Amino acid sequence: MTEYKLVVVGAGGVGKSALTIQLIQNHFVDEYDPTIEDSYRKQVVIDGETCLLDILDTAGQEEYSAMRDQYMRTGEGFLCVFAINNTKSFEDIHHYREQIKRVKDSEDVPMVLVGNKCDLPSRTVDTKQAQDLARSYGIPFIETSAKTRQGVDDAFYTLVREIRKHKEKMSKDGKKKKKKSKTKCVIM
């Protein structure tokens, strides 16, 4: 069974824990209790493949930012979460993405942009803004509501699919490099 290491990042209060708990335990946590770091595991079937999701729910508070490099190193894919009623959390996505790329030393890291709290009427981040940002990053965008469960499975499952595509691409690139290195030079 394939294991996928997913990391949920975003500013404090955007609903990272609520999304994760909704996926794992099928219930909505409405009281806000700032996370330092929590880890969850769940076995699911995605596109006919049974897999184990190892999900790291991270601290959004700035005082825990020193811990970010460590979990970013171990993560295979990242859910970059903002709240649709919090423009600052949307603007912060850029910083999370840049930090992930720096730590992973790669421009090509599996990510999904997630606009959470889409059940709320007080939207300050337009869907088109988020779609445009995701398009500019070359990553999928999904709106979710941890409260109603809308888009929750889709967000995590899409990230797994992005990781699969990335692994497939990397193995193809690896095979191309191996083929090239088999060419021999004969000096007579």
Results as ranks from 00 to 15, higher is better:
H166K: 07
A134S: 04
D57S: 10
E63P: 10
N86Y: 03
K128H: 13
I139L: 02
Y4R: 09
H27R: 09
G13A: 08
R73W: 06
A155H: 00
E37K: 12
A83M: 02
R164K: 15
F90T: 09
I21T: 15
Y32T: 11
D105V: 08
E37N: 15
D38N: 11
F90S: 04
T183E: 15
Q150R: 11
Y157E: 14
V9Q: 01
S145Y: 05
V186R: 03
P121E: 11
F156E: 01
F90L: 14
N26S: 09
M111L: 05
I46E: 02
K175F: 05
D154M: 09
N116H: 15
K5T: 02
T124I: 09
K88D: 05
T127W: 13
V125F: 11
V103Y: 15
K184W: 00
N26T: 06
L6S: 00
K88V: 03
G48C: 01
L6V: 08
V8D: 00
M111P: 00
R161C: 04
D38F: 06
Y4H: 14
G174W: 00
V152D: 04
G151H: 04
Q61C: 09
K5F: 00
P34I: 02
Q129E: 12
L113E: 00
E98T: 05
I55W: 07
H166S: 09
M170L: 13
M188T: 15
D57F: 15
V14D: 04
L79H: 02
C80I: 15
N86A: 03
S17Y: 00
I187E: 15
T144E: 08
K179M: 11
N116L: 15
D54M: 01
P121Y: 11
K147E: 15
E91Y: 05
F156M: 12
A18S: 08
K5L: 01
V109Y: 06
L23E: 13
I24H: 14
D92W: 03
T183A: 14
A134N: 03
C185F: 03
G174A: 14
I84C: 15
A66M: 06
V14N: 06
Q70R: 09
A155Q: 01
T50F: 03
M188Y: 07
C118V: 08
V152S: 04
I21V: 13
E31T: 05
L159F: 02
A134H: 02
E31Y: 10
K175H: 06
N116T: 15
D38T: 05
R135E: 12
V9N: 02
Q25K: 12
I21F: 13
R102G: 09
F78E: 00
Y4S: 07
M188I: 04
R164L: 06
Q150V: 13
A18N: 07
T124S: 12
I46F: 05
N86M: 01
A66R: 04
V112T: 00
T148A: 01
G77Q: 00
V9W: 02
Y4F: 12
L23A: 14
T87V: 09
K182Q: 08
K172D: 13
N26P: 06
L56H: 14
Y137P: 01
G75N: 06
D92A: 14
R135Q: 12
V8C: 04
L52T: 14
K172V: 10
I55R: 04
L6T: 02
T74D: 15
Y96I: 15
A130K: 02
I46M: 05
A83D: 15
V112W: 00
V7D: 00
E168M: 05
Q131C: 08
Q131H: 11
I55E: 08
K178M: 14
E168P: 04
D54P: 06
V14C: 11
C118Q: 05
Q99W: 15
D57Q: 04
V7Y: 05
E143Y: 12
N86S: 11
I84K: 09
Q131T: 06
V29C: 10
T35S: 13
Q61A: 11
K177T: 11
V186T: 15
A130S: 06
Y157T: 15
R149N: 09
G138E: 03
C118L: 07
Y40H: 13
R164T: 03
Q22A: 03
G13D: 10
D30N: 09
K182F: 02
G48N: 07
V7I: 10
F82E: 00
Y40Q: 14
Y64H: 13
D126W: 06
E98M: 01
H95A: 06
K180L: 15
